[in-house]
Design a protein around this nucleic acid. Structure first.
Length: 414
RNA sequence: AGACAGGUGGCCGAGCGGUUGAAGGCGCACGCCUGGAACGCGUGUAUGGGGCAACUCAUCGAGGGUUCGAAUCCCUUCCUGUCUGCCA
């Protein structure tokens, strides 16, 4: 959630920042009004409550002293009745405010390039040159068929479209990648966690998947549980509603989880292959940092993900997302796009975001700064998406006969 | 899943309708004491919100209710423990 006090005191600046994320000024004005209304309603209610509390105290004292309480009782009853509408308006003001506020995206950093679409993202650098093939490289689904690596039909039979089965060497490759990613992350100082794949509504709200993206989530019926769309949810929320000693920061975490996404609004995109599945595996990095250090940790995370791709010998580029492509919670995002020779395109394989204090405010993750509690910064990024790495290995390591080599660094894992 | 017991401050633990935001202890911080330490003594030690202060509101797992007044009573829910059942 954005800082409503900041919105209140620097409205023009705040609304300019959010205009870059296509948030209408009218919405923000409404938010500002609601915030003022809530404050006023709370003040009125508080005054009445203070009155009620002191009269109740007096009531007790009168009784103890055996004094007559009829008159006081009447006063106290009247005040109580007067409080009911105040309570209602305060409650209503709060509900309306938060409903709106929870749907407002984060402020983009000033450094984020302007743009509406993916095409406006800015390439920062390329790492490794795409390999030139002396034959026409195949797309991964063709290679999957030749090698018997992926069973699309039976995956669909078990669940529905956008589910698949990895078979034999492909399944082993997946397992090897997960171990390789986790080991590498651990070497870089990230502590490994194995977390629940189902998280409750409060957690999904805290990291920003809810309430706005309800339609993208798989929900368990009759339970207050969602299948996680990313390990960012459980890893970040491990510290939900906690106050951390400053000395413990930064917390660097990593974990492997499957991720579940409905991919609402992606109808027709990447329908072939395993680029876009309802269930995919991912190794995630999450960092909880002191606000002064989040940029530094961000760079570390980008470097780490890029180094992994380099170690796998996969050509990729580092791209800074423009305002239009930035996610809801992110203040800044850098994507890594891996070269897919079969498709002849760079495709996203990792996305690293700094949400600054946006998630921390929702999740109430603070650190002790002397006597005061301040919000931490939270960051998250993939290292890496496993399914897409398999695709990248298949396409980049294919031979003319359709066979696939295994990258050197993975050999000890298989 | 069923039965019983319970969820109080960093921790332990009292309180079971009224000056209790919460006794007492431990821990921690600071000070005194000491050559230095332990002991001892003193002071302080939750979170969020509003007031640039005095002060005030909320919070005793969470949510609702009863009451002038609730940590204390009632309901719902979550969690923990023990026993029973089931299960990888």
């Amino acid at each position: 959630m954005i800082d409503l006090k900041y919105l209140q005191s620097n409205f023009d600046e705040a609304s300019q920042k959010l205009r870059r994320k296509s948030v209408d000024v009218q919405t923000l004005k409404k938010l500002q009004v609601l915030f003022a209304e809530l404050k006023k309603a709370n003040q009125e209610l508080e005054t009445a409550q203070a009155e009620q509390n002191s009269m109740s105290k007096l009531f007790g004292q009168y009784k103890r002293e055996g004094r007559d309480i009829v008159e006081l009782k009447a006063k106290v009853d009247a005040n109580k009745a007067a409080m009911i509408p105040l309570q209602e308006s305060a409650r209503e003001a709060e509900a309306t405010l938060y409903e709106l506020a929870l749907g407002i995206p984060n402020f983009p950093d000033d450094s984020v390039p302007e743009g509406a679409y993916e095409e406006d993202n800015v390439e920062l650098r390329k790492v490794l040159e795409p390999i030139s093939f002396d034959f026409k490289p195949l797309e991964h689904w063709d290679l999957a068929e030749r090698n018997g690596w992926i069973d699309f039909e039976r995956g669909v039979k078990l669940a529905k479209s956008r589910f698949s089965i990895l078979k034999g060497e492909a399944s082993r490759l997946e397992r090897a990648l997960i171990n390789f990613f986790l080991d590498t992350n651990r070497d870089k100082g990230f502590t490994e966690y194995s977390v629940p794949f189902l998280n409750n509504t409060a957690m999904m709200l805290s990291t920003g998947q809810l309430p706005k993206f309800q339609n993208d989530q798989f929900k368990i019926c009759d339970e207050d549980l969602y299948l996680i769309p990313t390990a960012e949810v459980p890893l970040t929320n491990m510290y939900n509603n906690e106050i951390l000693p400053e000395s413990e920061l930064p917390l660097l975490m990593t974990g492997y989880t499957p991720c579940f996404r409905k991919e609402a609004g992606s109808a027709g995109r990447d329908t072939r292959g395993i680029i876009r599945q309802h269930q995919f595996n991912k190794v995630e990095m999450v960092a909880i940092t002191h606000p002064d250090r989040s940029d530094e940790v961000f760079d570390l995370m980008v470097a780490n993900a890029s180094d992994i791709l380099t170690a796998l010998g996969l050509p990729h580029r580092v791209v800074e997302l423009c305002t239009g492509d930035l996610g809801f919670s992110a203040a800044k995002t850098t994507d890594l796009e891996v070269w897919l020779p079969g498709q002849g395109k760079y495709r996203e394989i990792s996305s690293i975001s700094n949400t600054r204090d946006f998630q921390a405010r929702r999740a109430k993750i603070r650190y002790k700064d002397g006597k005061k509690n301040k919000l931490v910064h939270t960051l998250n990024g993939s290292a890496l998406a496993v399914g897409r790495t398999i695709v990248a290995i298949m396409e980049n390591y294919q031979n003319e006969d359709g066979s696939i080599e295994i990258p050197e660094v993975l050999k000890k894992y298989m």
